[in-house]
Design a protein around this nucleic acid. Structure first.
Lengths: 243, 243
DNA sequence: AGTAGATATATGTAACTTGCATATTACAGG
DNA sequence: CCTGTAATATGCAAGTTACATATATCTACT
């Protein structure tokens, strides 16, 4: 090896490159309310505060792959609907250095949410309360299980707010709701998910009709068990073929 | 200065950081069709191909500021609606090196579009044809003024396709259409913009009612001039106060 | 001056969608 | 076998949308 070979890899502008990270909004529904999984920061800055789990993007790793890796590392599992949310690039969003963060929204079923919590006990399942019920923006309240209202680290409150807003916006024209439900579910469960995300109650017959007319639901002929009253039929989500 | 001071800035991991760029979809409406401004690549890779204008993000520059700077540098003007679109991070999207690109959508009025073209004659105004008229995805055709169908460099066709898709999706719940129109416009011009983006024709009375009921339009009492027939009233866009 | 042509604007109606009230069905438990 | 509760189904009013049609207003031409 020639002693100057390393120079061809030497790129002074590399120092001028901000690192790129992915941050995950791990979202599920608990007790008919949106809930997010948070990690506690033990280092400066924002030591002691709760934050969205994240990690740096490897040089040989696409953004989607990095998000899937962080999901795996932070929750111990691979099952989740993952979609890119937005990229946050304010210069001072991290006081240590300039970091660009690509935020991803991960939608977890209740089962996956609980499994992550069991595998990674350090995670905090915090309830998310969205005060706005139809408007275009705002902020969200994040509440710990003990009822304590949290202030998230960095700009993570803004990321979470955007996640909730995006989810609401996509709710009735996309199939995101099904990513929060088990494979078999009742229409009531589907409505509960919608109501939790929208923060409003919906008219039951109208909701049923709309969902059934959409053509995404397949009746299984099976019924829920253990219901105290008339059991509801179980449906399955079937992505429409011609869409 | 201590001779080892530079070491505190020495960060070997910096070489592992992919540079971050912004790419701009400069979109306007020409002859009632969507049109995009492209730059010709004169270097490897994809030399000779047309591409979206872009630039690297400076270390002390937020993403939004970088996008505005690139807009200024590539079009010679500052007037445009700019919004972040999506971040493209496939490892091999640029054969030279790994580059992460934050795509922005810039909406230009016809006047701004022509001004950019006049200021930067190397730009190519290419027509964008979106073959899908309601579905969720697909690709777009990009056609040079001479009628030649172009193959864009890198993954820029995918970026452009996403831009068109996003624009369609936002068209009827947001105010993006007004970013493509001059300050004063007729209802017919507004409908033309909608039809160009949607790729379908719309029912005129229904469109008028919907737009007027939205509460965003203010009648000015002035009328278009130079019309061969009955002149249409000019309206102004007024962002609704309580929204 | 008056009329034809073209487009803006307005209105009426049928079809469709949505919200809401009400009725019926099916289960558990006493 | 009755009661309570929720699932499911149905009916109707109110609202929205698509479409056809009518009226208004301008230019251009004779």
């Amino acid at each position: 090896m020639n002693e100057t070979d390393f120079l061809k890899d030497y790129d002074p502008s590399a120092f001028q490159r901000p690192p790129v990270a992915v941050d995950l909004v791990l979202l599920g529904i608990r007790d008919n309310r949106p809930a997010v999984l948070l990690v506690k920061r033990d280092q400066h800055p924002h030591a002691g505060r709760w934050a969205l789990p994240g990690g740096f993007v490897g040089i040989d790793e696409s953004l989607d792959v990095a998000a899937a890796r962080v999901l795996r590392e932070k929750t111990g599992m691979a099952e989740a609907h993952l979609e890119q949310l937005y990229t946050f690039g304010a210069v001072d969003r991290d006081p240590r250095m300039r970091i660009i963060s690509v935020a991803y929204l991960a939608l977890l079923t209740e089962r996956a949410f609980d499994a992550a919590l069991a595998a990674m006990p350090a995670l905090l399942p915090a309830a998310v309360h969205v005060p706005w019920a139809g408007e275009t923006g705002g902020s969200v309240d994040v509440v710990a299980p003990e009822g304590e209202k949290l202030t998230l680290a960095f700009d993570h409150a803004a990321i979470l707010a955007m996640a909730m807003l995006r989810l609401r916006g996509k709710l009735d024209y996309s199939d995101v709701a099904f990513a929060l439900l088990p494979e078999l579910f009742t229409l009531r469960q589907l409505q509960d998910v919608h109501e939790a995300i929208l923060g409003t109650s919906l008219n039951k017959p109208a909701f049923r009709r709309r969902q059934l007319d959409r053509g995404w639901l397949v009746a299984t002929g099976a019924y829920e068990s253990g219901a105290a009253f008339r059991p509801a039929e179980l449906y399955r989500f079937q992505p429409s073929t011609a869409d």
